[in-house]
Design a protein around this nucleic acid. Structure first.
Lengths: 376, 376
DNA sequence: CCCTGTTAGGCGAACGTTCGCCTAACAGGT
DNA sequence: ACCTGTTAGGCGAACGTTCGCCTAACAGGG
């Protein structure tokens, strides 16, 4: 099962077998070559990557440290990253950072011991403010983040959160809403602050108050509760921007409980564009964020940094856009369409239900900014 | 940065340093011990797991081959598995099997080359019928699945799908429904057949027809479309059992479009109990499946098999239970509760919204059956 | 003084590769 | 006959560990 066995069977030295199997063409006679491959096949030889790694000093493996994957957003990042890694021949070690313990540090240690070629930080919830982990990420092995890393020095890939907040707010303002509120994510999070800045700037420019807000915890239950508090504080709100779709679902649920019709009494805008958003009641207007692509891009950047020396730690921003659905614009005619179902009409129906593409309001964001610009 | 450096600094041989750092207590003088640890600390020594693996012939790493992680269900499996693995000192290599290509085989090859200690198969959608992958899983390295593996020989951890179908059907029958329909997952899938068996047996025992069914694709859009077809075929259905919560959301959405009130005109039962289920409109009655625990259990079984020899390939079934919410039992009084919101009332509200625990109808399933029994 | 036991640590070998240099063997030109 | 070049493949070393056996050194008992 080792190179030696293959070599013995083919009647060559194991080093020669190594060369041949690694595709160093032309260094041996065609006939020997055949013999070696035949031997490998017959023996079911599987190269030992750990031995190889020991001498080449590279494992072709990257570590991903992520928050709870049952969060759809995180899962998207990871799937995109994993796909890109594998496309380029790398394996992915994954670890989830459970509930802000010192857990993440232990996991990083594990990655270092296993000599991963690079590390992708995808744990905004638990790592965004972790100085010690940040220190490790700045260490000798290349790292890339999809969230802020305290102290910098690590390239970051993300979306334009300011723009996200702006798109949501602009949409609501343009629809004529004057009493707009927002259900934010946890206040300590960077994204929340950024989105809030974008959101506020629009409201203030329109001369509207921007202080109606309640904090949620990214869950539907949190969105539900926040909405109840919101309505209690000011029953007259006519529009709510939730910082993610899950909370938006809670917002819809709470509005329904309170007998408010959506969008007639109160419009709702979410954020993320998770698949279910198009099938909530009513279908949710939301800001589409490119999570999958962010993961891909981050991994691509990471793999690029491996081996390269001293590439500057730049920052990449991916574009976001608004997807308008009925939670903000449900004209009465759109509310109760006659079913156009036929027995083969599935795709017809589902596209009728989620009108992506046709009604998108797109907005570009610059895709690769220097950190100078991005810091602004 | 290697043992040799540490040893040199401490003035001992590197083998001695190895012994000490690996905690072979008592084999050296206390004072030397201290010196070695001090040297390691000062040098920032990080053991090289790949060299260690080479000699110990075990990597303390397991491979997980999964379907698309953006599916909440799969993500739960993986998170449970990962957590258990790490708790026991193992790292997890993850690979997603993209859309039924030969992808999975390539990934398994990668795992074998990297000499993982075990493999966890968590890709029902793409691997359930893959004979070649099954062959690899039966190979020399221990494997465990959370889904059927063609040809057997691999321990499987799962839930009782027959019971799942039965619980949903019994609930609807007990509520007095006579025209019950179901939106299934893809017909080729094992789970679908099992759930259908349980579901059918209940309906037939009650003397009801069990042939109202449409196939979905696990997505909300699929559930939406299937419901439209269902209503077209027989507008008189009063209850629908969907094979997962995502499709159930589509069912709710379609019913809403068709002007059917839930549960008054048509009751809906889902399956999975994803977090959002409690916050759909109306909150969804669903069968709770223990995905996280399944992942944990599967990993635990796998780690147990590593090293152990010839442990029989048994089958583990985890219990499921029904969670009743308003999509089947929404009495009018429950439909529009006065908001009991106070400014600190968040938890009060959210528990009011999702009444887990109190109204659960629990049903036990045997937790560890011999394969003889489980096959029945 | 010798034998034995214990303590503290050294040392060689092996794990399965990759890499670069070395060397037979042979052919062709002078 | 000799030098030179090319082709085909061998060979030693190194990667950083673990593991088991070996051996100084010393102490104590007879």
């Amino acid at each position: 099962m080792s190179l030696k066995d293959v070599a013995a069977r083919a009647g060559v030295s194991f080093q020669t077998a190594s060369k041949v199997l690694n595709g160093r063409r032309g260094v041996v006679a065609e006939e020997t070559r055949e013999r070696i491959f035949a031997a490998a096949r017959e023996l079911g030889y599987v190269p030992n990557a750990v031995a190889r790694s020991l001498v080449t000093r590279s494992t072709y493996t990257v570590g991903v440290v992520a928050d709870d994957l049952s969060d759809w957003v995180l899962a998207q990042f990871v799937v995109g990253a994993e796909r890109e890694a594998r496309r380029r021949g790398h394996a992915v070690l994954i670890g989830t950072a459970h509930h802000g313990g010192p857990d993440a540090e232990g996991y990083l240690q594990l990655l270092l011991e296993r000599r991963v070629d690079g590390i992708l930080a995808a744990a905004p919830n638990s790592l965004e403010d972790d100085e010690r982990v940040a220190e490790l990420l700045r260490g000798p092995i290349p790292a890339v983040g999809i969230h802020h890393v305290p102290g910098g020095g690590v390239p970051v890939v993300g979306s334009d959160h300011r723009l996200t907040g702006r798109l949501a707010a602009e949409h609501l303002v343009e629809l004529g809403h004057r009493r707009i509120a927002t259900v934010t994510g946890p206040g300590a999070r960077r994204v929340v602050a950024s989105r809030l800045r974008g959101y506020r700037s629009v409201l203030e420019d329109a001369g509207l108050p921007a202080d109606r807000m309640e904090e949620g915890d990214w869950t539907a239950a949190g969105g539900y509760a926040a909405t109840c508090r919101l309505l209690e504080g000011d029953p007259s709100v006519t529009a709510i921007f939730a910082h993610n779709d899950l909370m938006a679902a809670g917002v819809l649920s709470a509005l329904h409980r309170h007998g408010r019709r959506v969008p007639d009494d109160c419009a709702v805008v979410g954020c993320d564009d998770m698949p279910l958003a198009a099938h909530l009641i009513p279908p949710l207007t939301t800001v589409h964020l490119p999570f999958y692509e962010t993961g891909e891009r981050a991994m691509s950047l990471l793999l690029g940094r491996i081996g390269e020396t001293g590439e500057p730690a730049r920052r990449v921003l991916l574009p976001v856009h608004l997807v308008v659905r009925e939670s903000t614009e449900g004209g009465e005619e759109a509310q109760w369409p006659e079913s156009r179902s036929t027995s083969t009409g599935r795709s017809e129906l589902s596209t009728a239900a989620s009108s992506e593409g046709s009604s998108n309001t797109s907005a570009a964001a610059s895709t690769e900014e220097s950190s100078t610009r991005a810091r602004s």
